[in-house]
Design a protein around this nucleic acid. Structure first.
Lengths: 237, 237
DNA sequence: CGTATTATTGACTCCATTCAAAGATAGTGG
DNA sequence: CCACTATCTTTGAATGGAGTCAATAATACG
């Protein structure tokens, strides 16, 4: 739970996606001095729990994670899926306690920008502060897109999920057309606000329509344009 | 569109809600030096448009506003309602362009923390930076709550909307039990992802059940506890 | 190989939407 | 001040999309 190692943001490979994005070499060095790499987690292990004290902003180095919140009924809600280079932990910024849990979806490693070094960095590396706000703003825009999506029919939600996952994987150097879902139908449904049976039926429908190929959790995107059209052509409200 | 005046955060009355919250007198003075007050807008006027260049973080001084995004179908989505002391403009942080519009719901005045003075403030007033992140984190938690809510039945969504509005008004010194909605049924429905007819029917139902009194857009909360119970007692998924 | 978990598929149900029409309210100009 | 109009709201009836329940099938795991 507390084995940290020094890390160098300069030769990480995610430097164009992660926090150092757009910073000078000198600024990256300043960050590297305080950023810690944490040891690898296995599927199901927690990056942090709901209620944990805020210890800083995390960055996924490899693997993936889900951000999970519990409502007053005790139901879990998968709010976000996090891929390499993405920052998380913002849910602990407001009152020093995390309001969500972050759980590894596969073997996952991550870095930590410790909370107690943040004020110092604000003063010394203002462009990092700006960059951190930029990331935070991106998260908000994503959340807003998800909120808009939540009012759309099931088909669009699932199409958007697949397209968005494909694009994000591509930006990280993975295949955009073939990938393995690290989520069960249940989890996809939970994330999109659908019953797991609906997810199953729609994946089948997409396959029958020649848009994708489904083999268990492996997805092959056959006709990306047609998938995109599902988002564009449907009626408004 | 560009008449700014100097303003003093120290004697604003919203200092325990707005950005200066928790800062020292000296720090508040530093902020006041760069924060501008902008002249009052009428209902329907824009605080900023979608696509506008990011010019800074805004704070509602009086009145209220709605944050509106357009999807690819051209439909408008009311993402948030903003009350006095709340910050907005975060949707412009990520790429220097606003991805939403902010529109006054009534006669409304607001302040501006200009973008070009932000990096300077990061260096000079790190605790303000921390506070700004805190606000940003609060927004995210609110967005996540809204996302969770979007999966719940219509009755719960509307109950939550009323309770949350009541609580936020109370914190600002307004009555928690009697208030005027600055939104039409249409707008409430849009915000909650419901048809306007559903909003109308549910308001009637709440009234018939003795939870609230509805007179046009005036709402009186009669039985807050029963309203809260709607959120607690219903089934899970 | 057997067991537990996960996924598929069908039938039925229901909540919320849509369509439609009437009623109320607010704003405007004569 | 009242009439007129545009907008907003209420209410009813019918429809449909997605959920629930249930049973079977496939996959992963020890």
């Amino acid at each position: 739970m507390s084995k940290f190692n020094q890390v160098s943001c300069g030769n990480c490979g995610l430097d164009n996606i992660c926090l150092p994005r757009g910073l000078s070499q000198q600024e990256i060095n300043s960050i590297s001095e305080v950023v810690k790499a944490k040891k690898t987690l296995q599927r199901g292990e927690f990056l942090y729990h709901e209620g944990d004290n805020f210890r800083g902003i995390l960055a996924i180095k490899s693997g993936s994670a889900k951000l999970v919140a519990c409502d007053q009924h005790g139901n879990e809600h998968i709010l976000n899926i996090l891929l390499p280079g993405e920052l998380l932990g913002f849910d602990g910024l407001s009152d020093e306690k995390h309001s969500c849990a972050a759980i590894a979806l596969e073997t996952t490693s991550f870095c930590l920008l410790p909370a107690d070094s943040m004020e110092e960095l604000f003063q010394n590396v203002p462009s990092m502060t700006r960059e951190l706000f930029r990331h935070s703003g991106e998260k908000m825009v994503e959340d807003k897109n998800q909120l808009i999506l939540s009012k759309r029919p099931a088909e669009e939600r699932l199409a958007y999920f697949l397209i968005s996952l494909s694009e994000r994987l591509k930006r990280r150097g993975f295949s955009a057309s073939e990938f393995k879902l690290s989520l069960s139908r249940q989890e996809i449904g939970n994330h999109l606000g659908l019953a797991l049976e609906t997810v199953s039926r729609l994946l089948k429908k997409f396959q029958d329509d020649g848009l994708i190929l489904v083999q268990n959790r492996f997805i092959t995107i056959i006709n990306l344009q047609a998938l995109r059209n599902l988002l564009q052509l449907s009626d408004s409200d």
